[in-house]
Design a protein around this nucleic acid. Structure first.
Lengths: 228, 228
DNA sequence: GAATTGAATTATGCATTCAATATTCTGTCA
DNA sequence: TGACAGAATATTGAATGCATAATTCAATTC
């Protein structure tokens, strides 16, 4: 698996081979990472000067990075008053999840329609692994495999636009660290849902795969919300 | 109706009352408009100097605007080589439409679930108007009302995240001017689809409203593709 | 003692300047 | 005539500087 993770989103289509990445995109990625990891707290105001000193760059590329992150919805740019990390209300979290559910539903649908057999078998295999980690109560590995499955389905859909739209929204809920808590009931149900999805994919039942993916996301959100 | 249109997307949450908009956002909007209107052609390279002279500003705010538009997917930023208007292949158009269909489907679903009666009745009324313009073969008005209905449903969904995600993708297909041609058959079918959607909304049948909206979009795309 | 006004400070918005890379032009050679 | 090498030019990337708006803080007034 590629290990660049969220700090290098696939936006970088044609970055030149050697480490000659533009400062602005480097800063964008670093800042996004910091926000996602919680080093910068929602509601917190960003001080340009402090960051330029921390990064050792001038304000110009930093400000360009801020514009990009604002476009991604991670920051609010308030005229003459600077950038503020967007705070996410419960209501907004609900909004985002609803959209994510629709997008992942579409991913399931498209994966069932268009993916090649190998991709679907890989997803099925991962789902077996998921069950195994559940049986062993291995939470960290479970989370990893769960992420891998979702990513695999998104990829199998073969729609970069979908991938990008999903990525943007996923950034915004990642901060919620919604995976931190998982009740036994929810855990069991989630595994079963995944098995249902894998089955639908193998059966090439696009409609069912889509519906199950969507439901899976909505249930996941219900579980998060239940915790408060 | 508010008349700021696409040149002032709802990103501007807290713009200060008096006309003191930042240059960078002004330029962003102007440039986006120019791209959407086709004044800047896909594949065309953007010359910063030329644009700074045209707008009468320095390169700094212009470059910030370019970063934002690149984040929106309207431009590709190639290191040391400048910005290029993204050209949309047929494949990409198909991708975007698929996602748009999912998003509008969600909008229909949410509108049926959450909108207040007044909003739904407004949509129903607009749908009657739509039928009337169809009967009169008044294409320009038809297009206007059609747009208004879609916008009204999106708004009725009461999900700003959905609205924003939709807006971003809508920008990208707007350039296709897919409304320019409309066969008699397709036109009739579209009106009927809209009536079905309005009925589902009034019946508060979220599932049906969602499915019909999604289908409506997919059919619209089929019609575009048929033309080539 | 709390509130308010105005000066001092700080931060932001934009323009300008400098540096590095890419592109174009010109002359030479095959 | 066409291809190539190298200089000249243009363009992009980043830093600095300046103007303006916002924030802070102290002094004054009620």
């Amino acid at each position: 698996m590629d290990n660049h993770g969220p700090e290098a989103p696939m936006t970088a289509l044609k970055s030149d081979p050697i480490g000659r990445t533009a400062l602005a995109v480097e800063i964008t990625n670093r800042l996004r990472q910091m926000i996602l990891e919680g080093l910068l707290h929602p509601g917190e105001k960003i001080n340009e000067k402090a960051l330029t000193e921390q990064f050792g760059v001038s304000r110009t590329p930093l400000r360009e990075a801020l514009k990009v992150l604002a476009a991604e919805g991670l920051l609010d740019l308030i005229p003459h008053r600077g950038a503020v990390i967007t705070r996410q209300s419960d209501a907004e979290l609900a909004e985002v999840f609803r959209v994510l559910a629709a997008l992942e539903g579409l991913a399931g649908e498209l994966a069932a329609e268009m993916a090649d057999d190998a991709a679907l078998e890989e997803i099925a295999a991962l789902t077996l692994d998921l069950r195994a980690t559940y049986d062993k109560s291995d939470r960290p590995t479970y989370f990893r495999i769960n992420q891998a499955i979702h990513k695999a389905i998104l990829s199998a859909a073969g729609n970069d636009t979908l991938l990008r739209a999903h990525e943007l929204l996923a950034f915004r809920v990642q901060r919620a660290r919604y995976q931190a808590n998982l009740t036994p009931d929810r855990w069991r149900a989630a595994v079963e849902e995944h098995e249902g999805i894998a089955a639908a994919l193998l059966a090439r039942d696009a409609d069912r795969a889509g519906r199950l993916m969507k439901l899976h996301l909505l249930r996941k959100f219900d579980a998060i919300r239940a915790k408060g």
